[in-house]
Design a protein around this nucleic acid. Structure first.
Lengths: 205, 205
DNA sequence: ATTATTATCTAGCGATCGATATTTAAATGA
DNA sequence: TCATTTAAATATCGATCGCTAGATAATAAT
């Protein structure tokens, strides 16, 4: 099935997947504008023409790095979609808390807080990250809608609003992790955030 | 008192405060790295040497623009500190919702989501914004501590955690406003966020 | 062996980056 | 008047930006 026939010309002398991973780490930490082609070629161990032959342009490489991040680092990879939506959301937030604060990686999330500001000519980079945030929000909303239909979510709960709210928590965790917040800091925030889960009305102080 | 004696040499031919305001708007929308000296001098209507004589360097101008933003646009300008801390926090969040989504201004907050990623050589810019976020978090925590001491906050509430949590809400609102979220979107999020305010324990769904 | 194909590096493109040396202009003080 | 002081623009600086033309190397097909 996966019999890969040998290509015609000179074979690649570097690992494309590994180079993409290294590019992702640079874009993640320093952003699109904060990462130069020289930074990228330096990390990959190749020269500019090789990078351009393999990835097309800086913007295309950035988009591919974003996709790679979503697959490789996305905190959603392993959350089992069970029948308890509240537990599922909480587990997701806790996985974000752990991943965003991992000292071995850039702080925060490459997507949640990526390319929020950029020069006019780099708007496509902001759009790329913004589209991924929009997609994530959309699929999160869809998951909550499904849960509501299955009776796991109270009738008065609004999936779109709830999705925006927990997206904000994730984005806030990303900002604070980028500023150096610890996993304990973020986990404590998750404790509070889960207190807003739609439930019985409660007395105020 | 404010008798301003006339300075010796040639007088300024441009309004420094107005130029600072224009610089702030550019940094706010495009970030530190996304704003060039040419952008700044163009908006100010002066040449580079004039900018450097007036503001020192790009980084110093950025720091000054951040301070100007905090004073001029800071959502804290007008929240009266009363005896109801819950209402005070909610009012603050609502003012953020309104300001972050103002179509006449750049989306989001210049501080909350400013300079999260940057090149190694521009780390001082990230530090400048990060320090402002840290200060805001600190003063927010202090306000909650004070409120707790005055009995406006339940005993089990942790000011530092609660401050981080509402800071995350603000940062999330800033991200989403930067992506085009409306005031209604953000206000709905505030509704949910206030549901996490420490109160009576509540039954879960 | 020769040709075709693909990948790589050397070298450098024009443009823009942040910042400045130098000169000229406009004010006050003597 | 004329020296002093401050601010302005002209004209660029060296460095870096994203990117590429052209030559060369390494493979497969013929």
């Amino acid at each position: 099935m996966s019999e890969r026939i040998k290509p015609r010309g000179r074979p690649r002398s570097f690992d494309r997947a590994d180079a993409l991973h290294k590019a992702m780490l640079l874009f993640w930490r320093h952003g699109y504008e904060g990462t130069s082609i020289a930074d990228l070629t330096g990390a990959m161990g190749v020269t500019p023409p090789t990078l351009y032959a393999a990835f097309g342009s800086k913007e295309k490489l950035y988009r591919e790095a974003l996709r790679h991040y979503a697959k490789d680092e996305g905190s959603d990879r392993s959350i089992p979609g069970g029948s308890n939506i509240r537990a599922e959301v909480e587990a997701y937030l806790r996985s974000c808390a752990r991943n965003f604060s991992d000292p071995a990686k850039p702080g925060g999330c490459m997507v949640s807080t990526g390319s929020l500001q950029c020069a006019v000519e780099n708007q496509p980079a902001k759009d790329a990250a913004g589209e991924m945030r929009a997609r994530a929000l959309q699929s999160f909303t869809a998951r909550l809608r499904q849960a509501k239909k299955q009776g796991e979510l109270r009738d008065e709960a609004e999936p779109a609003v709830l999705a925006r709210y927990y997206a904000a928590i994730i984005q806030g965790m990303s900002v604070q992790a980028s500023d150096g917040a610890s996993r304990a800091d973020l986990d404590a925030m998750v404790d509070v955030a889960m207190g807003a889960w739609p439930g019985k009305a409660r007395k105020r102080t």
